[in-house]
């Protein structure tokens, strides 16, 4: 009897020890992983670094990621920076800057927007959503108005 009792006691202690140990690991593992810095260091707020001053000569433009949607950053022929949503208000194609026309242009159905984002020719029914642009050193920071 006592031998059975001892084996029983040992088994329970073993079960308890290992399972509690494993539980502890199940708790600490996510915590340690949580503490490890993530791939992207910062949460993407309502502003984003859209580009560098040096990469945009006057009369040019580029597409940048703004959250999960594309935005368009342009530098006017006079050197000003402006940013808009790059989603055409007609059928949601991505617009582009046309240095030859000095306009924002949608290739899908030949929609034209002026440098203030206003729809001036072609199918687009509305102007492009305008963003706020700030230049900090070489960085161009775009944020929602």
């Amino acid at each position: 009897m006592p031998e059975v009792e001892t084996r029983r006691r040992r088994f329970i202690n073993f079960l308890l020890g290992t399972s509690l140990g494993a539980t502890l690991i199940a708790i600490t593992y996510p915590i340690i992983k949580f503490l490890v810095p993530p791939r992207v260091a910062e949460s993407a707020a309502s502003s984003v670094v859209a580009g560098k001053v040096s990469e945009l000569p006057p009369n040019s433009g580029k597409i940048f990621k703004f959250g999960s949607r594309p935005g368009i950053l342009i530098r006017t022929p006079t050197g000003e920076f402006r940013a808009f949503s790059a989603i055409c208000t007609h059928l949601q194609c991505t617009v582009q800057y046309r240095p030859d026309l000095r306009q924002i242009w949608c290739a899908c159905h030949n929609g034209h927007y002026d440098l203030n984002g206003r729809n001036i020719a072609g199918p687009p029914p509305r102007p492009l959503e305008k963003y706020v642009v700030n230049v900090r050193g070489d960085e161009i920071i775009v944020s929602r108005g």
Binding site: P30, I31, K33, F34, V36, P38, R39, V40, E42, S43, A44
Partner: peptide
């Protein structure tokens, strides 16, 4: 950001 980028942030 916590929910998507940080590992186990969702948890």
């Amino acid at each position: 950001f916590i929910m998507t980028e940080v590992s186990f942030g969702w948890l």
